[in-house]
Amino acid sequence: MQAKDLMTKEVITVKKETPVREIIDLLLRNRITGLPVVDETGKVLGIVSESDLVYKLETMLPTTSYWADRKKFKEERWKIMATTAGEIMSTNLIYATEDTPIEEIATLMLEKRIKRLPVLRDGKLVGIISRADVLKSILAEPSQARPVCE
């Protein structure tokens, strides 16, 4: 089984200029945990994940709680919401190509602790594989054996 058998072809993407508040909205509305950032030609520039966003919140928000300093908390929050995809995306791109085998995909996801892997053809995005896609393959009964003689 290879990347092309598992991948989702309709990928929700954002541009470098997309603000964080819009990214959060896309993630929550589509119940996904990350999005590729692409340019006009479909070239993948990076990935923005909910982990990147939570990390950003954690590092930018005052360590005092919301209740202790509400004003500061809100100011910081607005700053974060206005940040763009380009500023927070991971550019250290880990990806698969259409013929990457499933074991390699699973290994990459676990070793690199990532939840999704973009599938690229000549640097352009053609699909995405989530951990859920790998799980589906565990459930799938093996397809019927191919006829030996054709």
């Binding site: 959060i24 929550l28 966003l53 939570v54 919140l57 509400r70 908390f73 809100k74 929050r77």
Partner: peptide
């Protein structure tokens, strides 16, 4: 979950402020 934190952040501060 991380999604709950993002949802909380996206909501907080919008609209009325709660009294503490």
């Amino acid at each position: 979950s991380k999604a709950d934190i993002l949802r909380g952040m996206a909501k907080s501060g919008e609209g009325s402020t709660r009294a503490s």
